[in-house]
Design a protein around this nucleic acid. Sequence first.
DNA 1: AGATGCGCCATTGTATACAATAATTTCTTC
DNA 2: GAAGAAATTATTGTATACAATGGCGCATCT
Lengths: 227, 227
Amino acid sequence: MSEISSGSHAVSKDRALYNAVFDAVMEQRLRPGTRIGEQSLAEHFAVSRTVVRKVLQQLASDDVLCIEVNKGASVALTPPSLARSYLHTRMVLETELARLAATRITDREQKRLRKLHAYELRYREKGQRGRMLRMSAELHFAIANVSGNEPMALAARRVVSRCELIVAQYEREGVDQGCSCVDHGGLIDALVSGDPDFAARVMKVHLLGIEEKLQLDISSDVQRAFS
Amino acid sequence: MSEISSGSHAVSKDRALYNAVFDAVMEQRLRPGTRIGEQSLAEHFAVSRTVVRKVLQQLASDDVLCIEVNKGASVALTPPSLARSYLHTRMVLETELARLAATRITDREQKRLRKLHAYELRYREKGQRGRMLRMSAELHFAIANVSGNEPMALAARRVVSRCELIVAQYEREGVDQGCSCVDHGGLIDALVSGDPDFAARVMKVHLLGIEEKLQLDISSDVQRAFS
DNA sequence: AGATGCGCCATTGTATACAATAATTTCTTC
DNA sequence: GAAGAAATTATTGTATACAATGGCGCATCT
């Protein structure tokens, strides 16, 4: 329970709950495979199990949690082959989103992206890995929103979220890398350049860089949780 | 109520309910904008509102229904600009899925696709437009599944479903066209050819054909339901 | 007659109680 | 002492009861 703080200022009860769990997962305070009981969440947030179940199902439909019948929710685990599928899907969606974003980005939006990037770098320096990862994801979400294509951005949000979990599951221990978050500066530059193809190419290279730092081939320690 | 039949043989109660509503929407027995009350569904399927609400939320997360707070669920309406976004997203996902499918399709899968296509044509001849549209969507789902990329297929399923609603909302009255379903034969041929680029191109042309038959520019009669 | 305000009805949102399934512990037996 | 079975406990799934919000009609007032 202590991994889930109610930090997010509540818009509505269920939104706060959603954000709390989502953040906890994104910041790797809840690792893939972790069971999430309904009762404890309900008590901690002073709501009934009804709303807890609603939120858990939303998170499941957003590819963050996995719900098995009569067994409840857990942070999604991803076997290697499925992970590759997610990475491919992410590549397809985010390159296209970058293309779109490059043709539409405004000064205001650029400022917001730079701000997020600055936060990301600051957390990196402070060694707050979880917060940094959260910001990194937020930056990708923001870029998706710049595209102006809501459905594509939503689809990407789901896939990007899951890819964060995949990174958490398969990242090489030794490698320092936060998340290739230093790339993000150049990525924003590419978007601002206004050249769609260039932006897409930079996005592609960025994502390939992330994939390279995973070890999806050999069986990692966590992955054995599958049949 | 009468628009929703419990025809689907129940796997589990909620699955049956999901399929019933989904089919009703896909077959245009429930048109975009139609309100869907919880009580009536619960009575008709002999389940409590709890499971009804669960299913409705799943359908909403699958982009088929729209749920507004304190106002309940309704079949999703789509303003023109959003419709264009959906069509674009569909194009991106389904061309890639066609590319993948072309490299993996098996004889068994080809047979299944041909079978679905045959059904589609049969319904077309019998003038059962709803059933034909349902089969058309099912064929697109099946192609997505052939790709072997589950996340991409799921994302496409959502977008394709919504695009069926968009077609229902914006199709030109005069035009006979079922859904360019005659294209599907050639589409399957392209997949079987094994040439990814060719398959993708045929898919693209097919989807462009569908878009051409819509009138998204001028305000149609139904679309005014937006602010 | 039209517009506005009030009150009733219908529908949705939330909490709780009960049933069913899974997990765990303990007891028995070899 | 270990293995298996039965019972107990915990957790999830479902139904129902209650609260709250929204819509609708009627009455009243100008």
